[in-house]
């Protein structure tokens, strides 16, 4: 019992991170119709920025807490700058182009970000230390035999991810910019006709995706170290959005949780029978099944066709 819960919770926490990256995909896809291959690269660049800024800032300020706060703010500013540059240099010139053109453009952005990121911030393995507690915790020791083992840093990461997701959902539902963003997602031209400037909305969306990538990058980076392979972790979000539906914010969240839990639980309970390694392909196989039988995903939008 305790062990199952442990596995399940561990899955949920990883799932929240997948959800976070999936959210980045969905936001960009909804608002600009672009399937953003660069999301993974954004995670890497954001984590690199955070790692380096935090090193410099901690040294300069002589305090890890202050240093990390400053570094986080600098990284946020950096991701906003990246969003502005992408809009100016790429998106603006590709309005109303073919979908494949846009896809190629985001592939291009991926390479540029990967390359530039490592050129500017260096390409060795960096660590991010935001001072998360590492000592494992035992919970429910009185409830059942042996209790359960939890990593507090996972718990904090999950809390942060959940808060961020909830905040974003509220912002989209209730603020003027959020409304404008959903309007753009529904109908570009109509949004323009009422005076919503597409370019500015795109900057907002890419900046939000960048900040989401930053948070994911910090969490993962502090666990795994910041290195090139981080950008492939983000590829896990691909099956997440296929599962949840490319256009659905709740879909990204639930898809992330399902995949997170699914891969952990199946690894632990089915793994021994097939020689392990399920965790590596679970998400992709699930996504494939969905592509075959329900390509719009769990929550993908059905078009409202009535005119």
């Amino acid at each position: 019992m305790g062990f199952f819960l442990e596995t399940f919770l561990g899955g949920l926490m990883t799932g929240l991170l997948y959800a976070l990256i999936g959210l980045g995909f969905v936001l960009i896809f909804k608002a600009s119709g672009v399937f953003n291959f660069a999301q993974g690269a954004m995670v890497l660049v954001a984590a690199l920025a955070m790692a380096r800024f935090s090193g410099w800032a901690t040294e300069a300020l002589g305090s890890m807490v202050l240093g990390n706060v400053l570094a986080f703010l600098m990284s946020v500013a950096f991701m906003i700058a990246v969003a502005i540059v992408i809009e100016r240099l790429v998106l603006r010139h590709l309005v109303n182009q073919e979908l494949t053109t846009l896809l190629m453009a985001t592939l291009g952005i991926t390479y540029v970000l990967d390359g530039l990121g490592q050129m500017v911030f260096g390409s060795s393995v960096y660590t991010i230390d935001v001072g998360m507690p590492k000592e494992p915790l035992f919970l429910f020791e009185g409830v059942f035999e042996g209790g359960m083992l939890i990593n507090p840093d996972d718990l904090i990461a999950a809390g942060v991810a959940a808060t961020l997701v909830a905040t974003l959902a509220l912002l989209f539902q209730y603020t003027k910019v959020g409304r404008a963003l959903r309007a753009v997602a529904d109908d570009h031209q109509a949004a323009q006709s009422v005076g919503i400037p597409l370019g500015r909305i795109w900057v907002v969306v890419w900046a939000v995706a960048g900040i989401v990538a930053l948070v994911a990058g910090i969490v993962w980076g502090s666990k795994l170290g910041v290195q090139f392979s981080l950008s492939t972790v983000a590829l896990r979000a691909l099956p997440v959005v296929i599962l949840g539906g490319l256009t659905s914010v709740p879909g990204a969240i639930i898809g992330g949780l399902i995949i997170g839990v699914g891969e952990k639980v199946s690894e632990v309970y089915l793994g021994p029978f097939v020689g392990g390694g399920i965790e590596v392909w679970f998400a992709y196989v699930l996504a494939l099944v969905f592509l075959l039988f329900r390509p719009e995903g769990l929550f993908g939008e059905k078009h409202i066709d009535r005119v």
Partner: peptide, 9 residues
């Protein structure tokens, strides 16, 4: 032309 309301809003 064709109204173009935001269907999901």
């Amino acid at each position: 032309e064709g109204r173009h309301c935001f269907g999901h809003l």
